[in-house]
């Protein structure tokens, strides 16, 4: 990456560190494990994660499992609507390889063929702790990138 581009990117992503706003595309199986994350049991709001209902407000798109041919078109549209420093997280085994639907004619096999994916979280479905770890890693990555740029 060119140095200036990196700086711009870090500045943009730096905004993301304060609070991660997640778009509500709780499409498939992963939604049942995101419900405890959202609600009182695991309470993601204490880490600054909020659910928003509008893609124009969102920083992060969580794909929670298999996507069918029909729903991936909507995912691409939603992704294009999100403003630019944006992150895509894919939960579950299905976006990685197709999971147990590897021979299904109507589900996509790898999500990164359609939209850029920053993080895959494996599991069927992943536990709530895994989601937190993933967000933690994401924030840590952005922080490191920021420090690296500011040191230069």
């Amino acid at each position: 990456m060119v140095e200036t581009e990196k700086k711009v990117m870090a500045r943009k992503l730096g905004r993301l560190v304060r609070a991660v706003w997640i778009f509500n595309w709780f499409n498939s199986c992963g939604c049942t494990e995101l419900l405890p994350v959202v609600s009182s049991r695991y309470d993601m709001e204490r880490f600054g994660l909020i659910i928003v209902d509008n893609p124009k407000h969102a920083d992060c798109l969580i794909i929670t499992g298999y996507q069918t041919i029909k729903s991936i078109k909507r995912v691409v549209r939603i992704y294009n609507q999100m403003p630019d420093p944006k992150v895509v997280m894919a939960l579950g085994s299905c976006p990685i390889t197709g999971g147990m639907y590897w021979d299904s004619y109507n589900t996509i096999k790898r999500l990164s063929d359609y939209i850029p994916v920053h993080m895959y979280v494996p599991g069927c479905p992943p536990r709530p702790e895994a989601v937190f770890q993933a967000v933690g890693l994401l924030v840590e990555h952005v922080r490191k990138l920021k420090e690296e740029v500011s040191r230069k």
Partner: peptide, 20 residues
Amino acid sequence: LEDWDGPPPFRKDFNWRDYV
């Protein structure tokens, strides 16, 4: 199904795995 152009998919003579 959206944009489906193949034969009716649950018929036995339609080989799913080859199609996939």
